[in-house]
Design a protein around this nucleic acid. Sequence first.
DNA 1: CGGGATCCATATTGATACTG
DNA 2: CAGTATCAATATGGATCCCG
Lengths: 117, 117
Amino acid sequence: MEICPSNALPVRIGDKWTAWVVRLLEHGPRRFTELRKDMGRVTPKVLTETLRAMERDGMLTRTEFDEIPPRVEYELTELGHSLRALLDHTCAWTRENLPLIEAARRANDEADHARTA
Amino acid sequence: MEICPSNALPVRIGDKWTAWVVRLLEHGPRRFTELRKDMGRVTPKVLTETLRAMERDGMLTRTEFDEIPPRVEYELTELGHSLRALLDHTCAWTRENLPLIEAARRANDEADHARTA
DNA sequence: CGGGATCCATATTGATACTG
DNA sequence: CAGTATCAATATGGATCCCG
């Protein structure tokens, strides 16, 4: 799945991994390890922190099943889905404008380099 | 001027002060000290960093006038104004949803507290 | 006036190892 | 499987002082 470049710049939803989690949950509940495997390199600690923060803010629910081996599922709430809509919007903006930003950056860096040289 | 609560949660545009700068420049160019005075407590170092980063990304222009005492003006570019539009959108989302987030937070914190007690 | 330079406090993220 | 615990690295922001 392609995550939009919003992770690169310049709009951030929550902390570093929040947007990613929203994307991975947008089509239904997922398990801890599924999330972990689909997100670049997240340590379990950081993923747990992210999920707990999102749960606290009402963005998702955590459901623990009483089985062995254990199973826990995370699912977006309505509020979480509303956040997804906002994410879509910022992704659209980023897709449209990131090339302009990168062009400006290249131009400015080149100018700086010319002045230094 | 009332800045929207997006500084609090959960969407961030650029670094900590970027959104603030966009707001302060949306009606025209401003000078360094004007910006500084209107933004809570920013040290000149951090404000300079913020402005330089935004300039590099093509969000604003920096114009130096050859006068004594020195005068420098910062002004949003078209790209900067487009960022302002995105900011408006995220502010609207936040205004709508922040109460829900805070309610969820209170509810969860209360539940945790009850479990601890 | 508009910063630059230096040093410091803290928040955020990651690495690694271990467990009910 | 789904985490927790501990420790370390780093990025960010701030304090303070100084200068052309």
